[in-house]
Amino acid sequence: MSVLIFIDQSEGHIKKPSLEAICYGAKLAEKLGVNAEGLVLGSVTEDLADLGKYGVKKIYTISSPALEHMDAQVFTNAIAQAVQSSGAKVIIFANNVDGKAIAPRLSAKLKAGLVSGAIAIPDTSSGFVVKKNVFSGKAFANISLKTDIKIISLNPNSFPVVAGEGKAELIPLNISLEPGKVKVVAVNKVKGEIPLSEADKVVSGGRGLKGPENWGLVEDLAKALGAATACSRPVADSHWRPHHEHVGQTGLAIAPNLYIAIGISGAIQHLAGVNRSKVIVVINKDPEAPFFKAADYGIVGDAFEVVPKITEEVKKLKGTT
């Protein structure tokens, strides 16, 4: 019996939400008195043994031409076989794009209960109960899992990454896999930007910025902070900003440590995508803007005057610390 963590990679690099998943899985394994083990599919350029410092003792690896691109069907088959050979009873995913594609399939295949979007270590005081986000971040539900095998997919930015000591033993698994039916014909990545879903800080702009020509304001602050950029829905709908920056109920839901909202009114549908952020800063010229009710810090003022000054102060801070 063990806790098995699916370690997600992209182009040979381990993704940050997977490090969170490893630390979460290791903590859960400790609580259950079992080992935490990892699983990596496809070829990775990084030193996998080094992931031992996050608490995994063993890492199973499977390489096969069929695993070159993430195909939910093929990955599910591979993971199901690894679950069988490792005897894992709890399987952890990051609830990122790959986790959302694979974990539900695996749940149906193994008839293993799934909690997607978990935000805390399971409560095992009576049964096995996992807390997850529901109602787009406006509430939590405690979900009971009674199946023999259990699957949890962990929301990004819900569990801290802490490195200790240790090396993981690498165990290649030899399994045969049928190639997938999905053919990848192109990959279009936005180069040089921090992916919004993984960002630890986000600077976001709304209709208050008046037009795309003013986005330098948002970008300069984001750059000074090392933050990703986001926007409200009307901004994306008006093509001021690309669609993938749209956050909210119908866009991306994010939970960074810091969310700075500039010229965004704070409509309930916008809040639904950002209210899990740890610290929210609102800059709006209207003191009655609803966003202030959801904020930790606020400045009532004109973004065009205030934001460049904040950017200067951030640069000063970075220069001296």
């Binding site: 992209s10 993704k15 691109h69 990122n96 794009v97 039916k181 999905v182 053919k183 990848v184 014909v185 192109a186 990959v187 279009n188 990545k189 936005v190 930007e193 992916p195 879903s197 993984e198 993938h244």
Partner: peptide, 11 residues
């Protein structure tokens, strides 16, 4: 959607 972009698939 993939992290930081899009993947085009045929199926």
């Amino acid at each position: 959607e993939i992290e930081g972009g899009e993947e085009v698939c045929e199926i």
